[in-house]
């Protein structure tokens, strides 16, 4: 229902802004564009306008969806579309296309342009220079380019290993076979840090437990991911986890074999309610809100946010439909606290 409304709204907004863009086109050179957005942003009542570019679909049940969901929840909190407007381009895996999209949104008077993909960094650095009046956010990343003289870029980075560690503790407590399987995509980025944290969590908690790790070598091969999950179960695993949008394949197998799955990036419980025990959720809403208030008070960048278990940017969300013992939950809570207090390092 709200989806339909959103689409209608976006269509109208799209029509308006395309019209605006056409008019803007009459200005001779694009170099003139940077001056325009600041002027355009103000008269539009008090609506805050966000544009997002992300590498996979916003309904990927993983990385892109985590940001989309966060913005949607902030929108709800702020009072709907009249207070916060989002336009997005999803499935933009290729950097030059993303660069064009980011530049285009920047020139259209958005208050905040989110480049939700680490690979966009290089391009963002160039674009941000040309649009000093627009605030940009870039993640997952740690560099806000302040050292390069840019004052209008935020960076955000999830410490994926933290939630990975906690889920590892849960897995170690719950496994009966003492074998846990990890279905990875490519051994890189937050998939790698998540897996590293998870492995450490399991072995720190249960010395007897083995962690088997496989990779499929890409982010979309659902079928190979399913085969990997199946291999893990044949190798004795009774708990599975994994990262990237292609894990839906593994979740399907976990459901079939009636074993527990731990998710990451987005809350994956709705993919298979009786299978997903808990998910590490990237909850960007706190960061989004913080950025909005900073931008409203005139600060457009130079901050690097870190999502941690401590600041609530990472959340372990349990799924009530899957039984998890109080003992396991207590151990997980203890690990969460130790990580938050800095007593425990999630990465080896």
């Amino acid at each position: 229902m709200s989806k339909i409304n959103r689409r209608k709204f976006l269509t109208i907004a799209g029509t308006l802004s395309a019209g605006a863009a056409l008019t803007a086109c009459a200005t001779p050179a694009p170099t003139a564009a940077p001056a325009a957005p600041g002027a355009a942003a103000k008269p539009a009542a008090k609506q805050f306008k966000i544009a997002m570019v992300c590498p996979s679909l916003v309904n990927d049940a993983a990385f892109s969806q985590s940001m989309y969901d966060a913005i949607m929840s902030v929108q709800k909190e702020m009072g709907g579309e009249s207070a916060l407007m989002l336009k997005y381009s999803d499935n933009v895996f290729q950097v030059p296309n993303a660069a064009a999209a980011i530049r285009d949104y920047a020139g259209q008077g958005f208050d905040l342009v989110i480049a939700h993909g680490t690979q966009y960094g290089n391009s963002l650095q160039e674009i941000a220079k040309d649009f000093p009046n627009v605030a940009f956010a870039w993640g997952t990343a740690t560099d806000n380019f302040e050292s390069k003289g840019l004052k209008n870029v935020f960076a955000y980075n999830p410490k994926a290993e933290e939630g990975g560690y906690v889920l590892g503790v849960l897995a170690a407590k719950m496994t009966k076979s003492n074998v846990v399987g990890v279905c990875g995509p490519v051994e890189a980025g937050d998939a790698k840090t998540f897996v590293d944290g998870f492995k450490k969590g399991v072995t720190d908690t249960n010395k007897a437990a083995k962690v088997n790790v496989t990779y499929t070598g890409n982010f979309s091969d659902v079928s190979l991911m399913a085969a990997a999950a199946e291999t893990h179960t044949k190798a004795g695993a009774d708990i599975l986890t994994g990262s990237s949008q292609s894990v839906v394949g593994a979740i399907g197998i976990a459901k079939d074999k009636k074993i527990v799955w731990f998710g990451t990036q987005s809350n994956q419980a709705n993919l298979a309610p009786e299978t997903v025990g808990a998910s590490q959720v990237y909850d960007w809403s706190g960061i989004v809100k913080e950025m909005i208030s900073m931008i409203n008070s005139g600060k457009k960048g130079t901050v690097s946010f870190e999502s941690t278990l401590k600041n609530g940017g990472l959340k372990i969300v349990y799924n009530d439909k899957v039984a998890i013992s109080a003992d396991a939950k207590a151990a997980a809570a203890a690990a969460t606290k130790d990580i938050a207090d800095g007593k425990l390092k999630a990465l080896p």
């Binding site: 979309s220 949008q245 839906v248």
Partner: peptide, 13 residues
């Protein structure tokens, strides 16, 4: 085999 759908799920098959 998978029991779920996802965009481009065949991934080269």
């Amino acid at each position: 085999l998978i029991n779920l759908f996802q965009e481009n799920m065949t991934s080269g098959i």
